[in-house]
Structures are given as structure tokens and as C-alpha cells.
Amino acid sequence: MLSRIPQLLFYGLVSGSILALGGIGVSLTYSILRFSNFAHGDMMALGAYLTLALIPVAGTLGIPSAAIGPLSFGPRFIVAAVVGMACTFVIVVALDRLIFRRLRKAGRITLMITTIGIALSMRNALQFFWGPQPQYYTARIQLAIQVPRLAIRVKPDQLFVISVAVLLVALLHLFLRYTKTGKAMRATSDNPSLAQVTGINTERIILWTWVIGASLAALAGVLAGVENKFITPELGWQMLLSIFAAVILGGIGNPYGAILGGVIVGVSEEVSTAFISTGYKPAVAFGILVLMLLIRPTGLLGRRS
């Protein structure tokens, strides 16, 4: 049982990377639009399915599908994923214009209820078009490689998942730290009324928030598909609880906290399978969540509010 732990730690790092990418969006939405987006998980699934739909489209454009090196997918899939991310944020921004914008003054809870309605409709739209059964990005089977001296087996795809997550987290950090828009996002999250007073156009910042949050959500969905080898319409909803646990653990509203929380929750969930039934993985996240609410509701990196 204990001998499996190094391997589980590695799996945890993989799923933690995916949770972190999902959590960043939840955290940004929370800090800028000031509500919890319960449709975030389903935005992940949307991105995963749009990518699936775009793979044949990329094929007709002549983008080769041959696998890159040891990975199980090729340029065709990567192009489909990038375009899928863009399509996801276009849809999400359209939903903002159509629905959320009209409810900005209606209060946070109305917005949260709305996100639940959108979540359900979105998930069932995916189910309507693709059915509830699993869909596969690729039929290729990838063998795990034994890492010398460490008691773990690693698939190249999993290393890809971790590297993409690390790369995007680094890019996000540079964006928030050094670009004017990134700073304006932090300012808006810090003090929205003062941000307005300094001349920041809040609507534009909201637009950016959705673009980043939805793109990263779509990417998280695609990477979940790469890691699990299949996608279902429930993919995002099933991860939502873990994502929220990660976000609260790290400190809600703090994107860096979401990253830390994602890794901790991912690792805890995987390591827990050495001791309890796999069916209870999300319950582990729930346990972490409740524990955190009791001990330190502001989260590890949270500010006092």
C-alpha cells in the first residue's frame, strides 16, 4: 500500500495541474465579478468537446495528425485544442453579454443561480449533441515508462499535462505582474470602486477575465481528456467540487492560491486512494473544504476581508 505512494504523488501532480488551471478561472471570476461561477466545470467540458469537434476540421485543413515524439497526439490535436479554447471564450463572452451583463446589479446570489442554470443547460447541450457515452481523442495506446531509481511509471502525455500547466501559470503570472491590463485586473480585484475612479473601464476588465478564465477552463478540460483518455459531458461537473475545494484552500480570489490549492487537493485525492475506495475521491476534496472552512476560511494565501 505505502509502496504505491510515490506513484500516487505523481498522479496527484498531474490531476493537480488540471485542477489548478480550472481553479484560476474560478478565482479570477470570483475576484473581479464577485461571484462563484458554478458553470466553470461545464465550461471545461465545453472546451473539451469543441476540441473534439475541431479535430476533423483541422484534418481537412491538412494539419498532420502524426504523433509528436512519444506523445499520443500530434499537431492536429494541438491546433484543435487552441482553436477550441478560443471558441470556448467566444461562447462564454457571448453568455456574459447576453445574460450576466444584464444581471450585474441584481446581486451576487442571482448571478450564482444563473450560473447553475447555465451549467445545466451547457452540460445537457453537450449530452444532446455527443451523447452521455465517453468520447476518445485518440485510439493510440501509450505505455508508461519506468523512471529509473524512482518507483514511478510515467506516461509522456502526463509530463505534457504538467508542463503545459506550468507554462500557462508562468505566463499568467507575467501577465498579471507586468502588463497594464494584468495590473488593472489586480486593481479591480483589490478595490473595484477605486479602479473605476482611476479610469479603468470595468467592463473591459470583465471581458478579459472571461477570456482568460474560459480559455484556461477549456484547456483544463482538454488536458483532463488527455489524462483520462476520454471525455464525457459530466467531466467538468465531476471536477467542480475539487476545484472549489482547491480555490478555497488556496484563498478564494487569489489565482496563486488556486494553483497551490489545486496541487494539494490533487495530491490528496490520489494518495487517498491508497487507503479508501476510489469512489470517494471527490469526498476527500469535500473533507479538505470543510476542514479549511473550520480552521481558516480565508485560505492559505487569502487576505483577511
Binding site: K180, R186, A187, N191, S193, L194, V197, T198, G199
Partner: peptide, 25 residues
């Protein structure tokens, strides 16, 4: 230019960043 009575700074940002935000436009 307007300085509100309370909550008139961006607390999680540095002094320099606060000044930069002042010239956002």
C-alpha cells in the same frame, strides 16, 4: 481626480503600482 474617504488605495499592490494605476488612462 478624486480621492475617496476610505478604501482609497489598492492594498495588495505596491506603492509604485498604485501610482501607475493613477495614470492608467
Amino acid at each position: 481626480a478624486y480621492v475617496p474617504q476610505v478604501e482609497n488605495v489598492f492594498p495588495s499592490m505596491t506603492v509604485r503600482e498604485n501610482l501607475e494605476m493613477g495614470a492608467f488612462v
